[in-house]
Simulated assay, not measured.
Amino acid sequence: MMSEAEIVQTAPEVRKEKGEKNREQKQAEHIQRIHRTLVACFMGIAAGLLSYYLSGSVDPATGMQPNQIIGVLFLMAGVVFQKHIFMLIRIDYTELGNKDWFYQAFMTFALWFISWSVMLTTTTQ
């Protein structure tokens, strides 16, 4: 028979529900989400800079580059290559759902658009 002290010590374990995670698991998942967001941000910035430098010189009259499609291709490549970066930094990409991949793609697009736009508008000719 268990004493009252033993029952009190085991009570929190009994109250823990099946799908509930402990503090360490929550922290580890949070750090993985931060890493995934950083990968998306850096890929977006890199794709934006590559888009600017490799799409040709800016036409001062229109503010556009002659090969803008190259920039869009760099954006798509930035989204696709994230899977390989996740493998390199040992993040399990198989557990990501459609919502997670949409978030990754959106963050990459947002930073690609911002960095490329800033580069286009600050160009002096």
Rank of each mutant, 00 (worst) to 15 (best):
S57N: 11
T62W: 07
G63N: 15
N22T: 04
T124G: 13
A61H: 08
S3D: 14
Y93H: 08
M64C: 10
G56V: 03
T62S: 10
V72Q: 14
Y52F: 13
G56K: 01
A77H: 06
L96E: 11
W101D: 06
K18W: 15
N22A: 00
T123S: 08
S55N: 10
F74G: 09
F42S: 00
Q27H: 03
G97Y: 14
F74L: 12
G71S: 07
Q125Y: 13
M2D: 09
H84G: 12
W112K: 00
V118Q: 06
L96M: 13
P60W: 10
V58N: 01
I69M: 11
D92W: 05
Q82E: 12
L73H: 01
E29N: 01
K99S: 13
A11E: 13
Q82R: 01
P60Q: 03
L50Y: 07
I85S: 07
I91L: 10
M64D: 12
L111T: 04
V39Q: 02
S55F: 15
V8T: 03
Q9P: 01
V14F: 07
M119W: 10
Q27W: 05
H35D: 04
R90W: 01
T122P: 12
E95A: 02
S115L: 14
I89Q: 05
T122K: 08
C41P: 05
F42R: 00
